[in-house]
Design a protein around this nucleic acid. Sequence first.
RNA 1: GCGGUCAUAGCUCAAUGGUAGAGCACCGGGUUGUGGUCCCGGCUACACGGGUUCGAUCCCCGUUGAUCGCCCCA
Length: 477
Amino acid sequence: MPNKIKAPVKKIEKPIKVEEKIEEPEELKKKSSDPEQPVVPLPKGRKTPELLRGFRDILPDEQIYWEILREATKSMAETYSFDRIDFPILEKEELFIRTVGKQTDIVEKEIYGFEDKGGDKVVMRPEMTASAARAYINHGMLNLPQPVKFFYEGPNFRYDRPQAGRYRQFYQIGFEAFGSSEPIIDAQIIVMVYNLLKTIGLETNIRMNSIGTQDSRQAYKTELASYYRTKKNQICEDCKRRLLKNPMRLLDCKVEGCVAVKADAPQILDWLDEESKNHFMRILEFLDEAGVPYTLDPHLVRGLDYYNRTVFEIWTVNDEGERAQNAIGGGGRYDGLVELLGGREGTPGCGVALGMERIVLALKELKVQPTAKKVDVFFAQLGDSARRVGLKVFEDFRQSGISVREAFGKGSLKTQLELANKLGVLFTLILGQKEVLDGTIIVRDMESGAQEIVDASKIIQIMKKKLEIAKGLDTKR
RNA sequence: GCGGUCAUAGCUCAAUGGUAGAGCACCGGGUUGUGGUCCCGGCUACACGGGUUCGAUCCCCGUUGAUCGCCCCA
């Protein structure tokens, strides 16, 4: 506790330092750092540090879309009983090597990692499902009523080449359910996400596939590879590489020759074990029932090692643009994950991750126009005495719940009215020297320009009444 | 990691081998304390480095960044 009291005291000193910085940047640099160390000169002509590649600021203009998404997520999570959980950004490297897979691109070349001062190999998380499983085990959640369902939201990091909707720091929303292998769980997650996106205005299609169990998948891979080996002279260079590294990816190739070869390739669905096949059929039945549009995509393979059985991706429909066709989300079942991390044997799980910037991008492209929040009242002031009184009046308004804005930093009334106009407020309150002395406030109706002088002590009630009347007339507000 | 395209003010875009303009935005003004129109003024840019040239924003090379595609993924 004593620490908490001390902290603000220190902070008070800070603004003074900031001012010094503005006046004498060179001086301060020398003082603040080690005097032995020469000041590193900034590159010529570049006064401002630049954004790191693949990183971005999410500006106020865009926040509305993020808010819409977060709000919808929260309410959807509530109705489907997913509880909020947050994980640290830094995790042990081991966590992802064991789960995502050492051979995957994510781990092989996209990890932001370093050794910390204690010698631990740490990484900035490239995804969150592994953390979810880790948390499930760490906190003994196997003792809770199953399934245990969480949702989370936060940044992930992958050192990848930036592209539209792809950043090195990207935000995901995830839903995970541990402890049930019922196909209804898979279906419910898909239905929920589909509806979540629908409520914010995005029409999607789910691409569905099942990759069976480890064993059945392995058998299929072998079969597929041997099929392709016989056609080796007909496929492209990339595919020759895929054949060695990741045979399932062969089915993704768009090169003409390869497409022809693909037509006769063995299909994974034919290689599924009975149980997986059943599981998959049940899910599809549920989706049919729920009216979720989906497409079977036998070529869909997810890049993370922990998946088994169900895999799916969420795509926006009606993407006429030339943009890279990016899935806005993906997920699947990961029945071996918990066990892989040392949890109880056979603990099943299923989840989904949504790419937030991709959703925001889609919202923007589909011209989903978020309605800006309306402000009802603008508070204008003139002169110091008005400011002093105004601060209090403004606070009264805030507490009364009336949406109000101010510009105490501005001097002229003209400027303040301009601002009020831009905000589209219904009324502007004007408080000047004269009004302070008289104990009054001017209320200006912004539509008509009519003004009225009212008793300052009753201003809140008066405005409440006026707003009620004004809004009653204009149903749009 | 590989390939294509691109890089002029905060934004959208001009012009030019002799160092740059507009619109919007922003700030100020059009006499004392009144917005939505109008008028006036101000601010801010040739991504960075090197080469060719008497001289480069413009031509060439490199770097960085953006964008599109491959790979992969959210």
